[in-house]
Design a protein around this nucleic acid. Structure first.
Lengths: 147, 147
DNA sequence: ATAAAAGTGGGTAAAAGTGGGTGATTGAGG
DNA sequence: CCTCAATCACCCACTTTTACCCACTTTTAT
């Protein structure tokens, strides 16, 4: 199982191409078959799951009853935003326009490793996100990790 | 098994022809034999099942008790609206008039991958559908994916 | 210090998406 | 039964986007 971590600031060129940081690349399982699934994050960022990690979610989705209205809505939201991309010969993926628009990414991008996936942020948005949390890191950590 | 995903905005010409998005085309199994079954969706959209996926539903349908009035209604709605089409030399299918009328599709169409099938929406109707869901995506996601 | 790997940028051939013409097929009306 | 119009299948043509290759600079490893 993959476990991504770390943070990098990389360029994104005018074709939407971003390199996958070498350190994170090492965490990709061969089962991913050089393929990522891109989708929107819960926050204002774009996320990329290696194929093998994504498949775990696919399995869950397939068990949902499509005759239920709520389930259909959920599936449409998830799936409509999802797209499969392959890593090119230069270890890059390319993000299509809708993802750049959604996240406001342009020119520079912050890449964050988040365990089973990678996140792409507009650098200013990432800054803003961090500073919007008035609670101290220690406090949140204490709450989250309470047994 | 096929797994469609993604969302595209494509043109539909005055002959009713729509390209199958290349990304979704890659998810079609060869068993589908370049054939789709078109029918109406549960919502105001047109749906297309690759032949092999449709056959799974056919099996389910044939187990339904036809002496039950509700079952008969359901089967008539599904089957009366179903039609088989083949992908042409340019990777397109053509939607006959009744589907365009039902869904209000004209000129532009939103194509959504939904696991075992593809959906075709009038862009405005799709917008409306999304905005009619007052519940936030996170909320629904939390409910649906609750273990 | 040098070689290898990582990150960045650009050119080009192929694929994808879109539109139209034509001859065969069908089906309604005379 | 025949005719004409509408529909459809097939072919070709064009534009835009994507995939693939090469090249260069910077960083890392030995």
């Amino acid at each position: 199982m993959s476990f991504f971590k770390g943070q990098e600031v990389f360029s994104i060129d005018n074709k939407g191409r971003v390199s996958i940081p070498a350190k994170m690349r090492k965490a990709i399982s061969p089962e991913a078959n050089d393929t990522f699934i891109i989708t929107r994050g819960a926050d204002k960022c774009v996320v990329a799951y290696p194929l093998n990690e994504w498949k775990k979610y696919e399995e869950q989705y397939s068990t949902l009853n499509q005759y239920d209205e709520k389930n259909r809505y959920f599936l449409r939201m998830i799936l409509a935003w999802s797209e499969e991309v392959e890593i090119d010969g230069n270890q890059r993926i390319s993000l299509s326009k809708k993802y750049l628009d959604f996240s406001g990414i342009d020119g520079k991008v912050v890449i964050v490793g988040m365990m089973d996936h990678i996140e792409f942020w507009n650098p200013e948005e990432f800054e803003k996100y961090l500073s919007n949390h008035d609670e101290s890191y220690e406090n949140v950590a204490a709450q989250v990790m309470r047994k």
